[in-house]
């Protein structure tokens, strides 16, 4: 019988090409670090690390750059957005997994997933044309008249109201991350075994007690993961914030004043940077943002992996 040896070239080369593609992912991530570090090295040499982070000046004319104002804006908008979005997102998740009648579950779930797919620029534009005027005419004056009168907290709500402010940006960001938190938390809550819920009901627990004492503790890690994931998204969001924050590189105690974030500074000034030190300082900002979000996303991933392992057990 004639034996035919096929040349297994395709086998080897396919494996090799796919290996190269997988390797490319690693190379890309490492090269983001290297390239951003290399590009920002003039600014790192000039300003150092701590000095850069704690300097408030951002003066392209005098070539003095500090990251304090954008960093402050980024952190404050993110925290406020989470304060706004976490209760609502978890509320939606609880509603979808336990309260909602079953015929509403699928359409509402799909609606949430679709809203997560809407591009951030749409949120930003809506913020500029619709939310900012509402904030300016109704919400911010109201808060100023009520909360603004309380002695210490009042300092947060002072100044002229323009609608374009740190506060408006945080609200937009909050609205944007609600779907992320809701869908991850819903998935986590849904993983609670029915038998655990049923045994809690059997000993006479009310619905809320089942949610609070059985479902939430069981799916805690998944919910944390969702929140931290949303935190990572909020930190790096550009377009939703760029429209409504006003890009003002100063630190104001008042939330009703325009401010800036790292992403907004990059979006507005990157193409205008005319000197090497200016561009390098912008790359430095990008590097800080990259490291921040990388660490936060890694933490989120850690929670989610742990949660998954817990469920498999």
């Amino acid at each position: 019988m004639k034996r035919i040896f096929k040349v297994p070239f395709a086998d080897v080369s396919f494996g090799f090409v796919s290996f190269l593609s997988a390797l490319l992912i690693l190379i890309l991530i490492i090269s983001v670090f290297i390239v951003l570090y290399k590009e920002s090295s003039p600014a790192i040499e000039e300003f150092g690390v701590l000095k850069f982070i704690f300097t408030e000046d951002w003066n392209p004319v005098k070539e003095i750059f500090g990251a304090a104002a954008p960093l402050y804006g980024t952190i404050v908008t993110t925290i406020l957005a989470l304060l706004f979005a976490v209760p609502i997102g978890i509320g939606i998740a609880i509603f979808l997994s336990e309260i909602s009648p079953s015929f509403l579950k699928t359409p509402l779930g799909v609606a949430i997933e679709m809203l997560a797919a809407i591009p951030s620029i749409i949120y930003g534009m809506w913020g500029l044309f619709t939310l900012a005027p509402i904030m300016k005419n109704y919400v911010e004056p109201f808060i100023q008249k009520t909360l603004g009168q309380i002695p210490i907290i009042g300092a947060l709500f002072q100044g002229d109201i323009m609608g374009v402010s740190l506060f408006t940006a945080s609200v937009i960001l909050g609205i944007m991350i609600i779907p992320f938190i809701a869908s991850v938390s819903r998935d986590a809550l849904n993983l609670t075994p029915n038998i655990m819920k049923e045994s809690a009901y059997a000993v006479g627990a009310t619905k809320w007690e089942v949610i609070k004492d059985v479902m939430i503790p069981y799916s805690k890690l998944g919910i944390y993961g969702g929140i931290v994931l949303a935190l990572g998204r909020a930190l790096g969001e550009t377009m939703a914030v760029a429209f409504v924050i006003g890009h003002n590189p100063e630190i104001n105690l008042s939330l009703f004043q325009p401010a800036t974030t790292i992403t907004v500074t990059l979006a507005n000034e990157f193409t205008e940077a005319d000197t090497d030190l200016y561009l390098s300082s912008l790359f430095y900002l990008a590097l800080i943002l990259f490291i921040l979000s990388f660490v936060i996303l890694a933490v989120a991933k850690y929670f989610l992996i742990k949660a998954e392992r817990g469920f498999k057990r």
Binding site: A22, I25, L26, L28, I29, S31, V32, V35, L36, E39, L229, G232, R233, L235, G236, E237, T238, T263, L266, A267, F270, L282, F283, A286, L289, F290, S293, F294, L297, A298, K301, I305
Partner: peptide
């Protein structure tokens, strides 16, 4: 690779822009 690409999915897109720019 799997974990890193999960992280990469959510890396700020503007940082990707600066990287490609350079």
């Amino acid at each position: 690779v799997s974990i890193l690409s999960d992280i990469m999915v959510s890396v700020p897109s503007i940082v990707v822009g600066t990287f490609i720019y350079s």
